[in-house]
Design a protein around this nucleic acid. Sequence first.
DNA 1: GCGAGAGTTCAATTTAGTTTGAACAAACCG
DNA 2: CGGTTTGTTCAAACTAAATTGAACTCTCGC
Lengths: 167, 167
Amino acid sequence: MDDLLNGDQYELDPLERQVVAVFVDGVRVLGLPRSIGEIYGLLFISQTALSLDDLVQRLHISKGSASQGLRMLKSLGAVREAESGTERRTYYEPAIELKRLAGGFIREQIRPHLESGKTKISRLSETAQDIDDPERRKFLSERMERLETWMRSGGRVLPVLQKLLGQ
Amino acid sequence: MDDLLNGDQYELDPLERQVVAVFVDGVRVLGLPRSIGEIYGLLFISQTALSLDDLVQRLHISKGSASQGLRMLKSLGAVREAESGTERRTYYEPAIELKRLAGGFIREQIRPHLESGKTKISRLSETAQDIDDPERRKFLSERMERLETWMRSGGRVLPVLQKLLGQ
DNA sequence: GCGAGAGTTCAATTTAGTTTGAACAAACCG
DNA sequence: CGGTTTGTTCAAACTAAATTGAACTCTCGC
């Protein structure tokens, strides 16, 4: 596992470990992979911006994971590249405004599902019109209408959510 | 796979299959297992209440899955037992009010995480007070305060969400 | 142009979480 | 009671998804 004689600067200290654990837990609720939580968590408690290599070494994850994790976090707007002056290597820092985080999550993870759901449902709705048995047809129409109402509610709620989180 | 000569009443027709697929997809977004989506989806488009055995036969899932799935759906308030008159076997029907569904999900899946998160964070917050380096301590205090603010926002948003979905 | 460093990609592996199914319990009934 | 039907439990098997790491590309400095 860990080096027997280390004392190097790379191990996480207990506090860092716990904070990372909180974020790992947090992102699991959102259905995101563990590594995302680890990376964001470490950036969140780091006073300085960190490079991909820092993440690899301190979290003991592979370069592949770190690269993919950072890509997703960037797409969520949860991390940004820091001004690295003359350095070639890029350093990352976390976005810590809840508004931004929630906005990114909604945009990237929720909206797309909501949209594709709407589409599938309206297709189904049409298909349901072609059912022969009138009673069955009526029932299905009602249910499809219900589904469409759900989707509309979802669409209406998201902006409110964003507004509430962005104070 | 399927029986070659079947024509029995148990296979899902194409419309049913598609509706089930929509729900399978829907619950995955929520981080719930596929079988939950299958079961709820089938109940949602069924005109009559269904028994555990109906679900097993029509969805080709095991009794174990059906039993566990129904348990979770009941705990979420997403299905209820139908009045089954003199029958021994119990039949299930879906709750279709979005308010109820969202409420159950929030109560069972979100609140517990939020609560445990709050607890862990306030413990961390205390630990952070004991850091020796004053600059580090200040930084950590700020970040912990930030986390606590997030949690408070979360707590404030949920009731609003429920209210918005319940009309 | 060449070598070294930084980062990406993706097939193979590992892991976490779901599903299965056989054994069990509980309720009913002759 | 003994048998049948209904539903639950849980260890083992399976599967989907995350992670790894080796091969690759790109860019920079010399």
